[in-house]
Amino acid sequence: MNNRRSGNGRREVACHSCAHWRPHIFYPILGLCSVRGVLTFEDDWCEHYKPLSYGEDRFYWCVTCRMRLTAVEAREHASRGHKVYLSGYIDPDVREEIYDAF
């Protein structure tokens, strides 16, 4: 795994801008790498890196809004600076944190 972290500021080429990355829905400094099946930090990097794009007609996940989006909406949210990904990561034990709520 290439875990280079260079200099100051946020790296542009890192998990947070990778098409394979699924950010944690609540704590998006973490996320799931869908290629390697492991959680990484947003500023990690590996050779599978592929830049995010919103061309494909599918659902997307907006971290900023905590909402699922269509492709059209995804492009629009991304253009407003929202963090939009192909999907989000949900902790598999999330049920233990949820109440009876209806």
């Binding site: 704590y27 973490l30 959680l39």
Partner: peptide, 24 residues
Amino acid sequence: PLKAMLRKVSEEAKAPIASVSKTV
């Protein structure tokens, strides 16, 4: 500084980040 702290947890506990994510 949550991110730095989580990294430290990961390094010190020699644990994958998956389990570290449950410690926020």
